[in-house]
Design a protein around this nucleic acid. Structure first.
Lengths: 139, 139
DNA sequence: TTTACAAATCGTAATCATTACGATAAAATA
DNA sequence: TATTTTATCGTAATGATTACGATTTGTAAA
């Protein structure tokens, strides 16, 4: 998903295009990185001083529900990114900068048979560490 | 880790044994289940009306730091369980009751080579769904 | 067993992320 | 431009967690 596709989806579904919504998409337009709600809020605050939490969180949920964004819980805080889901995959996530790298491997292929009478509804597989750039900065 | 081992570890490390600490261990003594801080607090409140949050959370962290408990973030809330870590493994977690089942399979074996110049510091693999008991209750 | 003191707990307030709501403003379209 | 629906504002509430000075309690030495 990119900014253009997201705008198209919103108008298709009858949502109004506001400057705030567009700028939220701009903020997320890097497709390979997770952000916190806080960092989004700070960005929006810099453009729209005094912007309401309501606006930021409501639109975050809207985007998430529409599949424009995907999210993950890190340190008991939600992190969001552009949905990059064409087909099922997982992520390496840099614990320093939030950048991600796709992992084209899913452990579930082997797990189903280990969990015979358990009804599987979902799973999470993430790898954490430092991306090459942050390793350089840390050394 | 079981209750007896935990008590031994605490006294070894010079921590004082209080009734509250013992009862927290009792609460967690099922080795195959995750609990929220809230559910622990409610249990402790039933025994010690008016018990302080401080006591509950401080001891949760203590137990976690000592390796008596392990934790995971589910729905942006921390869940705790007795540490069952003799050797590395993962869990199926029932989204209804919190019960767990070991998964003796780790995807990292295959992942290392996919992430050549990324410095891996940790990973999370969990499977969610309904355990056999909760499937029966749900039907 | 009392005493002494470090450690644990209490009572309560603060913090952080998130959610919620009535009043107002703005986008879409007729 | 007028109308209507939706979005946003301003702000307060909620839920999980953390923090702190005052008080109490375990523990070990006298």
């Amino acid at each position: 998903m990119n900014k253009k596709q997201a705008i198209q989806l919103l108008s298709q579904r009858g949502y109004k295009m506001t400057k705030r919504r567009k700028d939220m998409l701009t903020f997320f337009s890097h497709e390979d990185k997770y952000y916190t709600a806080k960092s989004l809020y700070e960005y929006m605050e810099s453009i729209y001083p005094g912007i309401s939490f309501d606006t930021v969180y409501r639109n975050l949920h809207l985007y998430h529900d529409l599949g424009i964004l995907e999210s993950t819980d890190l340190d008991a805080e939600k992190h969001f990114r552009m949905n990059c889901g064409t087909q099922h995959h997982h992520h390496f996530i840099c614990s320093q900068c939030g950048k991600t790298k796709k992992i084209n491997l899913c452990p579930m292929d082997d797990v189903h048979e280990l969990l015979g009478n358990y009804q599987i509804e979902g799973h999470k597989f993430e790898v954490y560490g430092l991306c090459p750039e942050c390793q350089v900065l840390a050394s």
